[in-house]
Nucleic acid binder design. Structure first.
Length: 415
RNA sequence: GCGAUCAUAGCUCAGUUGGUUAGAGCGCCGGUUUGUGGUACCGGAGGUCGCGGGUUCGAGCCCCGUUGAUCGCCCCA
């Protein structure tokens, strides 16, 4: 060890937009995942694992022509063989690729769920990171509106069981089938062209690239124009109308509250019919907690057979931030304060016995013996055991939760 | 890619119109209580004030640059 400060080794900085978690937030994170794993079983969704890395084509092809996303917001690199690899920015495309690769058509309709890290090369802000984590649920190979409805009921129950449903609203829209969508899009472009002079600069650019996006613009100049734009309803084919009606009927039957948001859109062309977001105003600019929709065109885009599918994803960090403060009890059962090092072996024996009986137990046996009781008292635990010597005799004292005090005494006196 | 705000001890922050040896709380380490006791008292360690230039007799404070963070815009699969 050198004390020469000039020889100090510089500490590498974490990659921008990544995070380290310890304690409270890590516990919340795990709680979200555990709850998801429990609830997805209730709905019969199979656990699925797909790679974190995929050939870039998996995402580039699924995302189509949306240049910004592909060119600027993916983590891509060349491997040693010269192949372009991308860190997955979403689950859906990888799962769709796996569905084709493994011939999972034989299992259709296939209900799957997964969770894990995703990567997007974006500017970090509240609830938005470069490495982030999502829960994901998909139904592949079903064209039934019941699949959409079930997925939404699943999502609704998950949010309720997490205790975050308060202040979170399910907003729902339909993008219709291909024919409905094309007709609506044409009408929107015509509407916006007529008001071109009043649109914001951003929306003028959207008019070329992605006119549907003008509908959810945040710019106050765009709002009156967006609000007066035609809804898709007048352009829906009978089939599309029936489909949406069946989804909402399914939600009503299951008692799931929802709101129509005729301004909710998706940028990518493979989206059909149902589009939805669970939104909150508690997360700053990143208000979407869980979102998804039907993507009947995606698997075909990847070279697979025409396959209807629907799914959603939810940000684990965002859900973790919404959890109530006192939701998770991370207290130990016991904490032992060893106040006399002469009793160390006895204390270790007691520690092992308590742990073997299934009690979460920690020991404080370092530092000034006189301070160990105070130190132990600061560790969150339901009962405190002090072990020491009094009048030359060993003594053990347990205080705290009544039941634990009794079972703890029994275990220790049996030693 | 754009904008705003910020950067002082391990953590959370003070630091007055630029003026001697840069402070507090928490945490850490040690001591005190001859105690059945839980946030007490005393002491200690720990800081090139993000980094690099500049202005000045003198800069934590002012100016420029740079790096990073936060929040927002764009984008949002």
């Amino acid at each position: 060890m050198s004390k020469d400060k000039s020889a100090k080794i510089p500490t590498p900085q974490p990659v921008r937009g990544t995070q380290d978690m310890l304690g409270d937030f890590a516990d919340r994170f795990a709680y979200v995942v555990e709850t998801f794993e429990r609830v997805r079983r209730l709905y019969g969704y199979k656990r699925i694992e797909v790679p974190v890395i995929e050939p870039t084509a998996v995402f580039a092809r699924s995302l189509g022509e949306t240049t910004d996303v592909v060119s600027k917001e993916m983590y891509s690199f060349e491997d040693r063989g010269g192949e372009s690899i991308t860190l997955r920015p979403e689950f859906t495309a990888g799962i769709a690729r796996a569905y084709i690769s493994n011939g999972w058509q034989q299992f259709a309709p296939l209900k799957v769920a997964t969770h894990g890290p995703l990567f997007r090369y974006e500017r970090p802000q509240k609830g938005r990171y470069r490495q982030f984590h999502q829960l994901d649920a998909e139904v592949l190979g079903s064209d039934s509106p019941l699949a959409d409805a079930e997925l939404l009921v699943f999502a609704d129950q998950l949010l309720k069981e997490l205790g975050v449903a308060e202040g979170v609203t399910l907003t729902l829209n339909t993008l219709g089938d291909a024919a409905s969508r094309d007709a609506w899009r044409a009408a929107l472009v015509e509407h916006f062209m007529g008001r071109k002079a009043d649109l914001s600069e951003d929306s003028l650019a959207r008019l070329d690239k992605n006119p549907l996006r003008i509908l959810d613009s945040k710019d106050p100049r765009d709002r009156p124009i967006a609000d007066s734009a035609p809804d898709i309803d007048a352009f829906l084919t009978n089939e599309a109308q029936d489909f949406f009606g069946a989804v909402t009927a399914g939600l009503d039957a299951a008692g799931v509250a929802w709101e129509r948001n005729a301004r909710l859109v998706r940028g990518l062309d493979y989206y059909r019919h149902t589009a939805f977001e669970f939104v909150t105003d508690r997360l700053g600019a990143q208000g979407t907690v869980l979102g998804g929709g039907r993507y009947d065109g995606l698997i075909e885009n990847l070279g697979g057979p025409p396959t209807p599918a629907v799914g959603w994803a939810a940000g684990i960090e965002r859900l973790a931030m919404l959890l109530a403060d006192d939701l998770i009890d991370t207290r130990l059962d016991f904490v032992i304060a060893l106040e006399d090092d002469g009793r160390l072996m006895f204390a270790m024996n007691a520690l092992a016995a308590l742990r073997n009986k299934g009690f979460a137990t920690e020991i404080v046996a370092t530092g000034s013996p006189r301070k160990r009781f105070d130190k132990a008292g600061k560790i969150p635990a339901r009962a405190l055991i002090s072990i020491g010597t009094r009048d030359g005799e060993p003594y053990v004292n347990i205080r705290g939760d009544d039941e634990l005090t009794i079972s703890g005494s029994a275990i220790i006196s049996a030693l």
